[in-house]
Amino acid sequence: MSGRKRISDVFAYILIGICCVISVSVLIGIIAYVFIKGIGVVDWSFLSSVTSVLNGTVGIAGNIVNTIIAVVLTLLISAPVGICGAIYLNEYAKPGKIVSAIEFATETLSGIPSIIFGMFGMVFFVEGLHMGYSLLAGSLTLSLMVLPLITRNTQEALKTVPDSYRQGAIGLGSTKLYMIVKILIPSAMQGIVTGVILAVGRVVGESAVLLFTAGSAKLLPNDIKQLLLKPFQSGGTLTVQMYLSATSEGDFDTAFGIAVVLLIIVLCINFLTKLLTRLFNKSTRTV
């Protein structure tokens, strides 16, 4: 290697290192600032009660329940549709204009701003289908938003499975459905789970869609009946409440406290993704 190439390599290495340091520093700075501003607000009362002027309490328990309901409903709707759609596109559909059109539509959906999904959900689900502001309307809208993410991740995961698995199963007399359920899906489970977890992270951090469709109620269900009826009622998630606390109510302490809770949830989701990836890698190597 010439001296010029060595100098350029060293310069590129230093430049990449500087970019990495800047990225990590910005992340650490944001996390540290949010934690310093909001960690003093977070305690058991803050997590287990609701805001009440009469009782003099400030809490986000109702918002936590609403967030969990929104995540569960969204996954129940989008995960089966996205996974089955990816299986059809990758295993059944013949390459052509129809498949290209579906993939193009999926990629276009993934690039649409969330505020547009929110406006569509308000017009179609809230007003058109007369659902009103409810967690169900918000979850249906969120399902449309995360569907491309789950579909594309599942499709790419299925593409990584060697064709020899398919040919061997069919050659041994297996049906195509049995081969997909027993061989392809377990082999691609790492990518499928990663896509679902990423979808959960996007749902947890979404606010624009839910402001237009789910409303901002923060009441905590008192019994099982109220909990079962909650999807059909208005409900504000953690991100919605954080936005309202910082803008409409001017309560920045509560907003930063919610931000701390959201950061912890997002970090846990990322660590869970890494953990599951390692577990699936170990199981694959063992097999």
Rank of each mutant, 00 (worst) to 15 (best):
L219K: 13
L279N: 09
C268M: 14
R278I: 03
D251R: 08
N55L: 13
Q241Y: 10
V123Y: 14
V42T: 05
V260Q: 02
I192K: 01
L15W: 11
L73K: 13
L129T: 10
Q167M: 12
I185K: 02
S48C: 06
V72Q: 04
S164V: 10
L228M: 12
I18H: 04
G17T: 15
N63W: 02
L135N: 00
E103Y: 12
C84F: 15
V161P: 02
A199V: 06
T141Q: 04
D163K: 14
P162Y: 00
C84V: 15
F35V: 13
V196S: 06
F256R: 09
L228S: 10
T213N: 01
P95F: 01
A93H: 05
E249I: 10
I102V: 11
A137T: 07
T247M: 01
G118A: 04
S110Q: 11
F232V: 07
D223Y: 03
L15H: 14
T108E: 05
L73Y: 14
N281Q: 14
E249N: 14
K182I: 03
L177A: 13
S25L: 06
V50T: 11
L238M: 12
F271H: 11
S114W: 05
C268P: 10
S2N: 09
F104K: 14
G138W: 11
P113H: 07
A61D: 04
M122L: 14
G38Q: 03
F212R: 08
L279Q: 12
F120L: 07
T247E: 03
A246H: 01
V261G: 05
V53E: 15
L54C: 09
N281K: 13
D223E: 05
F124P: 01
F232T: 06
E249V: 09
A105L: 13
I116A: 02
I98N: 07
V123R: 15
E107G: 01
V81A: 09
Y92G: 10
G85N: 07
L15I: 13
Y243T: 00
T67F: 01
F125L: 05
L129G: 04
I14Q: 10
G29K: 03
G40P: 01
S49A: 12
F117A: 00
L47F: 08
Y178P: 02
A259Q: 02
V287E: 15
G168W: 06
I102R: 02
I87D: 06
V71W: 02
L109C: 01
I18A: 07
M145F: 11
V42F: 02
L238H: 12
I64H: 10
S248W: 00
A32F: 08
S2M: 09
T141F: 03
A188F: 03
F11Y: 14
L75I: 08
I112T: 04
E103Q: 12
V287K: 15
Y92H: 12
I83C: 03
L140V: 11
F124A: 12
G205H: 04
G118W: 10
P95H: 04
I197Q: 01
S52T: 00
L198R: 02
L15D: 11
L227W: 03
V41M: 10
P231R: 04
V260D: 04
A70C: 07
